[in-house]
Design a protein around this nucleic acid. Sequence first.
DNA 1: CAAGAACGAGAGCACTGCTCTTGAAACGGA
DNA 2: TCCGTTTCAAGAGCAGTGCTCTCGTTCTTG
Lengths: 260, 260
Amino acid sequence: MVSAPKAGTLKNMTKIRGARERARGEITTAIKDEARRQLAAEGAAKLSLRAVARELGMVSSALYRYFPGRDDLLTALITDSYDALGGVAEAALEASAAQGDSHLARWQSVCRAVREWALAHPHEYALIYGSPVPGYAAPDSTTGPAARAALVLITIAADAHAAGALRVPGTAEAATGPAHAGTPHVPAAPTSVLQDARELTERLDVDLPAPVMAEMAAAWAQLFGLLSFELFGQFERVIEARDDLFDHAAVSLARGVGLA
Amino acid sequence: MVSAPKAGTLKNMTKIRGARERARGEITTAIKDEARRQLAAEGAAKLSLRAVARELGMVSSALYRYFPGRDDLLTALITDSYDALGGVAEAALEASAAQGDSHLARWQSVCRAVREWALAHPHEYALIYGSPVPGYAAPDSTTGPAARAALVLITIAADAHAAGALRVPGTAEAATGPAHAGTPHVPAAPTSVLQDARELTERLDVDLPAPVMAEMAAAWAQLFGLLSFELFGQFERVIEARDDLFDHAAVSLARGVGLA
DNA sequence: CAAGAACGAGAGCACTGCTCTTGAAACGGA
DNA sequence: TCCGTTTCAAGAGCAGTGCTCTCGTTCTTG
């Protein structure tokens, strides 16, 4: 009835003559952008399909042509966030490596980049590393992007290992440096964990001793413990020098995986 | 007509008004119990005031006599959860100490107790250590219970320090053990963090060197990084031997704060 | 060019948190 | 014992939500 003059309501970003598929893609990203905006403004719990549609000048039911439901919209945002974080981490490593930084310095700049992204996008961080939504189970499509950022740190360790600059936990140091004192001896993880670590190195196709990979998994989780405490307010009125604490902990973790 | 009768009632209100007050208390805990049930069943996001009221055989509006709103109910659940976790940690320490365990063994059994509570009450864990609800800001009333569990680990470190069994980060070990090799030298945190740590020891009135307290803050956060990764599914299809990884990481963290 | 898929609009369902009003209890001073 | 005050459960109602269904229209494709 009245729909003819309404063609331009979508900010006429989609011209009538444009291919349907392209319009679909543009509208899809427009929806995600608006959803991300609301996410940053109010948090995931207050993300409303109707509000997104309203802001986009369309009716709520029309949104279901693009996303089967609210949870699917969230899933899309989650994978996007994983990808954004992974991209940031990769860029940081690339920049640091191009600068000729040491492996430890690369580790630290990747950690810093991750933290900066998290501080800049707290709600997206909460989306991927906070409590999962009600009955939501992350589909397998998210595991790939989720591993991207972790893979960056793993790559640093693998590079260090290839360069012979990695101390492997569980081995009494004897070869390279001065063995008199001060070089910490890190005990290796139990064999069950080492088994998981071995499978992980195979799956990721990376050349890294299992004890290192095991420490890496723990370090990765611990890193996000620090971030979550900071972002979720657990350090409020407790730790003020959060940048310094994070940096300090980051090099401690690097030492834990045998780096430097 | 102003406040004449109020003077008397305010004085001994808990004694005189017995039945009403007690009924109120019972209904309040009944509401919280039912809310906790729904929390465990469906998650915080699906916690519905109306459903709680329905299950309790009352009308939704009646619930507002006991809690000003949904968020206040959540707040009550949060403080309860903090208290439960704190109680579990304290009980674990007490049992371990009574058993004559070493400081490191006490640390480990407290860590295990925390993890077991978290695994048994994942939704309550998510409530206190997951992403915060929309615009919700934890009131100051939660900081006390929140610190309880952390204080248990701090106490262990303080006891070890009093017994002279604590290695302080930043100091080159020389006194007790064989100094030839293997005793790790942990660098101290930057001074800004040490300053925060010093204030923290004063506020908590505990005798602990600032470097240790700084490592303690980091270790506390990192511990929950491991827990969150496990509970929020980040270790799914990555690490299967999660018990062993946690135990291994727990003693690593203990070493980080100078314990054993 | 016409069949059919994709689409936007709208009405509607069941549900939510929350407010306001009403009438009935319980309470405590007289 | 009586009566005003306070507390409470109930109900109606408002605005908002996710989601489904139907209805014409529009674009695409055989």
